[in-house]
Design a protein around this nucleic acid. Sequence first.
DNA 1: AACCACAACAACCGCGTCCGG
DNA 2: GCCGGACGCGGTTGTTGTGGT
Length: 224
Amino acid sequence: MGRKPCCDKVGLKRGPWTIEEDHKLMNFIFNNGIPCWRHVPKLAGLLRCGKSCRLRWINYLRPDLKRGCFTESEEDEIIRLHSQLGNRWSKIASHFPGRTDNEIKNHWNTRIRKKLKLLGFDPVTHKPVENGEKNKQEETKSEDVRKDDEIQTTLDGTETDDLLNNYEILCGSLDSSFSKEESNNPSMATQEEDCLKQWVDCVDSFFSWDNFIHLEEQIPFPWL
DNA sequence: AACCACAACAACCGCGTCCGG
DNA sequence: GCCGGACGCGGTTGTTGTGGT
């Protein structure tokens, strides 16, 4: 029963990636593309499994990643998409160029879910929590959590009722098509440009580019 | 200054799906 | 159509950072 592990784990490194490992992986992918993740670690000289390399590349090293906090409008769209798609993070992420499913999932679990709960909505169904159920939940809350909730009931001075209204308006427009919005979005090109700039700034400060040999000649970047 | 609790994020794990043989 | 390998996804865990006591 069960699947074979994706790789022989003996002797493989785990945990946080070092700069040197990132460097090796990036250098390899820039020079060779991604032939087969299973072979990448060996060819790149890394003691990692292919899955780990893939994850690192997708979630952290990819040039088109947009790092930084989620904007309010991004959060709103995440909520809206989640109400439509559920926990299909990759599908949700596909609507946010430069954002990864992991990033969105983490943001949902750490912030948005709490926000919805505080507003009295079930983050799974996106429906208002029943009063009885809510009361039951309230009873089981610790004193500390309740205090926390009291503070949070007004966010930035906005009354909870207003927030509820906003949320309902948000969810009320579920029919609008995303692809249509995207295609009509004039800021999309500048967003991509910003992503690239951000990434270059980020990598610049992170690595010594002297270590890359004639990078511009070797990287098959589509924009070069 | 030291400790603790919590939040945020990175990374791992296991399963489902896809695809080529 | 079946099988097995590889990839992708979503849930979960681990690690690090930060604020409070």
